[in-house]
Each structure stands twice: as C-alpha cells, then as structure tokens.
C-alpha cells in the first residue's frame, strides 16, 4: 500500500492505495465519487475526465500514486454552494445529453477548454471535445451547450 495526499474538490485527503490503482478507481471505489464514469477504460472515451492541477485528464490512465500532492477536481466539485455550475446548467438547458453517461466527462472537458481560452466556435469546440465520445447524440446539442455555458462562465467572471 502506498500513502498519497491529494486535494480533492477543495478538501485535503490522505489515501492508501495499491500502486496499480488508477485515479478513477480511487475516486469511485474509495471516495464514492461516482460522478466520474468509466466508459472504455482505454483512454478513448473521456467519460472519466477530471481536472488534475487545472488540466482535463482521463483518470482511467493516471496512476493514483503519481497524483500524490495534486489538486483534483471532479464533477462533484464543480457546483458551488449547491448551485450548479453554468456549464451544468447549459447542458440541462440545451439538452446536451441523452443517456447522460458521457456528460460528466463532457462537462469537465468543456470547462477546461473555456478556462484555457479555446476559440468558442463550433468547429473549435468539436476539435477540443474530440477526446470525449457520446454514442447517443449527434453532438449538436453538446456543442450548443458548451457555447451557452462558455458565455455564461465569461459573464460570471467579468
């Protein structure tokens, strides 16, 4: 067993895990933060996307022990004071989902691309979301949701 210290959704945690545990396994199985999903477990689908030190990464392909000392944010940490994040609201308003399995990863990627100043036009958003796969929709409403969420995020920060 290895001991690691992480800041998860703003709270410091000390965790014990085996060296071969992935970050998503620790989040889901130990901390019961089951909002982060495991879709493919092969770095393709992006359902497990979380933020590590402010960057969107696929938590199925990160060893938990290598995240020692990191600042981790999951979909559960996005809402502040029980109020949904603007990107969550936008996915709801635009119906940017059908089954919803890919949605937490989509939202974490969307927030990252807005935070990093990605161009907010449909083609650039599609390119920036290419690491997140949705098998229900045609991505139309997802792209619309990201555009709406982005403008609301920018409004809130201005």
């Amino acid at each position: 067993m290895e001991t690691i210290e992480l800041k998860i959704n703003g709270r410091k945690r000390t965790l014990h895990c085996l060296p071969n545990a992935t970050l998503v396994e620790v989040l889901r199985d130990q901390l019961h933060l089951t909002g982060t999903h495991v879709g493919c477990d092969t770095t393709q689908c992006g359902a497990c996307t979380i933020h590590v030190d402010g960057c969107a990464v696929k938590a199925c392909t990160v060893l938990a022990v290598r995240s020692d000392g990191s600042d981790v944010m999951t979909i559960e940490g996005l809402a502040e004071n029980e109020a949904s994040h603007p990107m969550q609201e936008a996915f709801k308003a635009c119906h940017g989902l059908q089954c919803g399995f890919c949605t937490p990863g989509m939202i974490m990627s969307a927030v990252d691309l807005v935070n990093k100043g990605c161009a907010l036009e449909p083609s650039a958003i599609r390119e920036a979301l290419s690491g997140n796969i949705c098998r229900c929709t045609g991505y139309q409403n997802i792209v619309a949701a990201v555009m709406q969420g982005a403008s609301e995020m920018q409004e809130q920060s201005s």
Binding site: G46, A56, V62, D112
Partner: peptide, 9 residues
C-alpha cells in the same frame, strides 16, 4: 496529437 486530455499527459 491524440486529443486534449492526452496532450496534457
């Protein structure tokens, strides 16, 4: 290369 998430790692 790859996608956004992959490029961070």
């Amino acid at each position: 290369i790859g996608d956004r998430q992959v490029r961070y790692r």
